[in-house]
Design a protein around this nucleic acid. Structure first.
Length: 158
DNA sequence: GCCAACGTTGGC
DNA sequence: GCCAACGTTGGC
């Protein structure tokens, strides 16, 4: 049994927020069109892995809650949907280019932890999210980083 | 294989 | 709305 891993996924709350996930319970994380992010979903994410739900392009941006990986990666159907904004004409149905996972709501932070605050927290100096110019929408989180943030956010799952 | 041009992300 | 940073594309 592989060690449980931790992740972070970004979402613009105007598009899909932690409250939306709480309402839906579970959702498909479709539309990821970046190879590195795809690889994390396809090769890294395992059922039960915990995921920080990060609000990007928000005021303030920050960590809003926790989800968990609900299933292994599967081909993202939106890549074959001509009407979808995520349609990819170059993706071969026999060898789908883009994958997605389902995520399940776990809990909401007692308070949102703003990006600005994270930058000042001891122990998070090397966190991927805080690196300059970091745009990756799916990132691994170390157990140490998880523990620090979970405590700050008053989360039950640590 | 290089790299300029272009498109996108996301903080501010 | 601006723009720095970055990923992708395509000409050569």
């Amino acid at each position: 049994m592989a060690e449980k891993q931790y992740w972070l996924i970004k979402s613009e709350p105007d598009v899909y927020s932690i409250d939306d996930l709480a309402r839906d319970g579970r959702t498909g994380w479709e539309g990821v069109r970046n190879y590195q992010a795809r690889n994390f979903m396809r090769d890294g994410m395992k059922v039960g892995d915990l995921v920080f739900f990060y609000h990007s392009s928000a005021d303030p941006a920050g960590i809003a809650g926790v989800a968990k990986v609900a299933g292994r990666a599967y081909p993202d159907p939106s890549q074959f949907d001509r009407k979808s904004e995520y349609y990819d004409a170059d993706s071969d149905p026999d060898q789908p280019r883009w994958m997605m996972v389902d995520v399940e709501f776990v809990e909401k932070c007692k308070r949102l932890i703003p990006l600005d605050e994270l930058r000042g927290v001891k122990g998070l100096e090397k966190m991927a999210l805080l690196k300059r110019g970091q745009r990756l929408s799916i990132q691994p989180v170390t157990p140490g980083e998880w523990a620090i943030i979970a405590k700050l956010a008053g989360l039950k799952c640590r």
